[in-house]
Design a protein around this nucleic acid. Structure first.
Lengths: 223, 223
DNA sequence: GTCAAGCAGATTGTCTGACATTCTTGCAAT
DNA sequence: ATTGCAAGAATGTCAGACAATCTGCTTGAC
């Protein structure tokens, strides 16, 4: 038997279920940035007890998806452009590294999977469903991160991207952003498929920079 | 009044107090890797109730300082060398970037602070107090990270370093490691003081690589 | 004697209910 | 209009309870 194959299945506990639900709710923009989350309301909406909810909120707090100020309770943080910039910068660092490594080590099957996810994004890009666009694009990155050979890189990246999900939705709905995003992602894919590390890094960097610029525009316009 | 000067003082809640205490306990190696943390025991030791403890544990779980398996409860994860390697690799990525940026933008006062922390490490290095060595070394990095101009870089780095605190203590007690560490840190400091970004990056990279090598040795020897 | 089945104790997951402390808000008074 | 106060709402924390699950030990079968 393979030594560290993890056979243990994780029972779904109320806490986990709640974290997942709330995270999804935050991603899909159900809560306004800055708005407060009232425990009693969430409890009745989710049908769970306050201790369970509070555990879930602590998890989300540690992920920086919510803030909890003592005696004021949990709220959705309003992401400043300053912090968003910092996140995009670190994301660039990680994604560039991941794309470069991925180009050198991805397996044929995974490459096929990557191609498929690119097609899925292509389809979403021609539609106007910006949620589908964000989801399929996230798939594309996560395959790259999953194949960079460094699980920590993947983990940290996931945490960062989660925090800017707010911008991703908004900037995807910018005129033409989805299409140019598609072109950038295609270039990343081609570089990886060719096993060209340097090109993959370059394309990846370009992509993050443009995503950041798009986010900035959508922020300036939007609010 | 400056717009986002945060005047709010954070009352110390039981939850936060508990997280800090447990984190410190983990850092100082009070719990063996792999050992389980029994809630009822911790409650009576800390003098708090179970709900409060469980909230604290969820925070630590999200920081990856403990693991919580459903129906088995919390435990200290046994860090595999594979994961440790991955952490060191990402740490390298972040620290190199931070050192480079820091060289370009650190203020004179902060530079002085950095110099002082280097002296503190120097003193600790001549002693045999490996805890003091780890603490002062951590100070040194945290000043660099705090002056890189990117709070996210700092935050992510802190999270990663926390997870390898286990190794840091062990490798510092290796024969001669503290002294060579001192030499490496001094080189980083000199580069930053000179405002030489490239040298700072190079020195920083060297330092992480050697720290990683030392950790590997201490792991192979140690257990 | 070894191994499997099963039972008792320990531990966790979750809920209910409670209460002191702190925040918020609306109203009254200056 | 600003200040101060009081009522209501929300949070921080605890105690206790109970079902589900795990763990280790005893017992029984081969």
């Amino acid at each position: 038997m393979p030594p560290d194959l993890n056979l243990r299945i994780s029972p779904r506990t109320v806490q986990r279920e709640t974290v997942d639900k709330l995270r999804l709710a935050i991603f899909s923009g159900l809560f306004q940035p800055g708005s407060r989350l009232v425990e009693s309301q969430l409890c009745s909406q989710l049908g769970i007890s306050r201790p369970s909810l509070r555990e879930a909120l602590r998890s989300l707090e540690a992920e920086r998806l919510i803030e909890i100020v003592p005696n004021r309770g949990p709220s959705i943080p309003a992401l400043s452009w300053e912090v968003a910039t910092a996140i995009y910068e670190v994301r660039e660092l990680l994604e560039v590294e991941a794309a470069g490594r991925c180009a050198l080590r991805i397996s044929p099957e995974q490459l096929l999977k990557l191609e498929k996810s690119l097609s899925a994004f292509e389809e979403a890009a021609s539609s106007n469903d910006s949620l589908a666009q964000v989801m399929t694009a996230a798939d594309f990155y996560s395959i790259i991160l999953a194949n960079c050979g460094n699980p920590i890189l993947e983990e940290v990246h996931r945490g960062l991207v989660a925090r800017i999900s707010f911008f991703r939705g908004r900037s995807m709905s910018l005129e033409g952003r989805a299409q140019s995003s598609l072109a950038e992602m295609r270039e990343i894919f081609e570089s990886i498929a060719a096993g060209d590390e340097k090109a993959a890094r370059k394309a990846s960097k370009q992509h993050v920079l443009k995503a950041k610029a798009a986010a900035k525009i959508s922020m300036d316009n939007g609010i």
